[in-house]
Design a protein around this nucleic acid. Structure first.
Lengths: 351, 351
DNA sequence: TATTAGCACTCCAACCGATTGAGTGCTAAC
DNA sequence: GTTAGCACTCAATCGGTTGGAGTGCTAATA
């Protein structure tokens, strides 16, 4: 059987009504829809077909119908096609370029949650492919050396090294030369034990302390290559009874939303999606979601780009009857806004 | 009327039973308590007295009794007196001294939430009174200068300054001298416009760029003097029906627990408490709590100390029928553990 | 005088059955 | 092919009933 125009009309009517009410939709309700000229009986027949085809579900014998995952998928795909071009610029978001990336992202995630009324997640860009730009050691006092590393995108990392014997200023200068010559332009993944051993050998003298410092520098650079995750509006799920009536699942969702580790996993997983790469935006419905916790939710993700192709993510979690149109629109705006803001004014200090 | 021994026994029995069940407690239940030799009728009479005195409440005519805020207060005060001395050391918490303060605190807050099964909050120490230890500017490239500031407690702040004209190495050296001579040992609140103006004048030449750099340095030091707040286990409130049955209030509590700004306010407010200063631990019940959201909760707070008297907070939020004994014990342990860990090994890098 | 047993009373919570109403599927007529 | 009409289903709701937990009071007891 094929989806003719009438079936599509009815399916859309069911889905949209269900978005508003969250209740199963009956044939009589549909028959009152603008554009519907045929009777409820006809609709009932069509509904039987639609159910057989898997687009809608009847929760129990004498109830109305609700959309199945397949139904949502159909709706979203159609919508994406229609809307794709209309994506406009994010006007409302005031990005002061001098601000830290962290502050911007916090602002963005709050804005997103407020606008859409769904829980929102934003990640800072992953920096595994980031390159070392500048390294510097300085003596803070006799027993402490400060190590600062500037990475691409002006990400600054630092650490204080406690040393037993002080390092003379000449030796400090030498070390700085050595470090910058050897490490400049390398990525996090380029830095390994062999390289450190080589540097240690070429430093020659004052063995013990050099080794300690070198190790710490390497450690500083490689540490924390994980991106940060920001969330906002987790409690918005209480607005949707189908997600929050059951305490168990409500608590699980909120738990997931406040578990940074889990969210990081989640973002990593979604970032490698081929559809996401194509469109820049991806909608996942129910079981398509990578997390078990979210099997009753839909997730919309997008990526934004930092200057050097390093990507960060934006995501929204909501009920399956999410206002996909609005969400996709809002996300597109924010994505574009972020793309622009970050590609231009990259003079900001991250972390 | 006075609280004689028997009344105290009954009151404690009611409170402890209510802790377990969360249901109003009747006279018959109490009569089966170990140590209770008198009948339920006698207990009923005593309960009438206790109610008159304001220690317990009857939710409706034919129900058992639940403790009032005054009842909890009595219980907690008695308990604190008895327990105060037994405070032991935190053994379970493995603090590797080299770890960052941030990591430690995250570990602590998780541990606290897991052990107590209540939502937990931990704040990093406030640094408003912190002193500048070391300042350094370095040329990253022609258009960027890196500014790093080390504060007391080895807190490192940094920023990248975009400049139009490059700063020569000699001038950079001069600036570094100037900065360290003038700023060393000052607190965040000591740094004001007048001081900057003075420094600018004593720098003399290359006006424009000096002013920009000086301002940014001052900005870097004074920024972000706010402490950070970590939370864990917010969803534990779902374990206590009296807090989570009402969606409205459940959502409000979780909202509060994920609103950093609000938590900061909350911590600031509680840190100045005179009882807290005396005992190092404070229990707030119901209306005693500073936040409206938590009027149905109890809050236990403690402070831990960094080397220089700078204080951070630990807090637990739970139902009024909280296991105060266990919570106070756990908090004491963790407080002590933190005090020790941070006073000794302050070689860690914060932020 | 303090304690206790006993009893009448209250009130909530749970249960039950009847009712309602939304919605269906089917059939026969258009 | 469409529709009107009807019998049927089922969840939700409502009011009445019941049971039990718990009280307060009183009268008897130590």
């Amino acid at each position: 059987m094929e989806l003719d125009d009438r079936k599509i009309l009815i399916l859309n009517a069911i889905i949209e009504t269900y978005f508003e009410t969250g209740e199963p939709v009956g044939s009589r309700t549909i028959s009152k829809f603008p554009g519907v000229t045929f009777s409820s009986a006809t609709i009932r027949n069509e509904m039987q077909d639609l159910e057989e085809m898997g687009y809608i579900i009847q929760p129990h014998t004498s109830a109305g119908r609700i959309p199945s995952d397949k139904g949502y998928r159909f709706y979203v795909d159609n919508m994406l096609e229609a809307k794709d071009s209309e994506i406009t610029d994010m006007k409302g978001l005031l990005l002061e370029k001098t601000e830290k990336l962290e502050a911007i992202l916090k602002q963005v995630v709050t804005l997103l949650a407020k606008t859409t009324q769904y829980p929102s997640v934003v990640s800072s860009p992953a920096v595994a492919t980031n390159r070392v730009k500048f390294v510097q050691l300085s003596n803070v006092n006799e027993s402490q050396i400060l190590c600062v590393v500037v990475m691409g995108g002006n990400l600054v990392k630092n650490r204080i090294i406690d040393v037993i014997e002080p390092l003379s200023n000449e030796n400090l200068l030498k070390m700085n030369m050595l470090l910058n010559t050897n490490l400049n332009g390398l990525t996090v993944s380029d830095i390994n034990l062999e390289l450190i051993e080589r540097m240690r050998r070429s430093a020659g003298e004052h063995e013990g302390i050099v080794e300690q410092v070198l190790k710490t520098v390497a450690d500083t650079i490689t540490e924390d290559e994980e991106f940060e995750v920001y969330t906002s509006g987790a409690t918005n799920i209480f607005k949707y009874p189908e997600l929050s009536d059951n305490k168990e699942s409500a608590s699980e969702i909120i738990e997931t939303l406040s578990d940074r580790e889990e969210l990081r996993e989640f973002i990593k997983e979604t970032q490698n999606d081929e559809e996401l790469k194509k469109n820049g935006i991806r909608v996942m419905i129910g079981a398509e979601t990578p997390l078990e916790t979210m099997k009753d939710c839909s997730v919309v993700t997008a990526t934004y780009e930092l200057s050097d192709g390093v990507k960060g993510s934006i995501a929204i979690i909501g009920p399956k009857r999410m206002d996909y149109r609005k969400v996709v629109e809002t996300m597109s705006r924010i994505k574009n806004g972020l793309d622009k803001a970050l590609k231009k004014g990259s003079s900001s200090n991250e972390e």
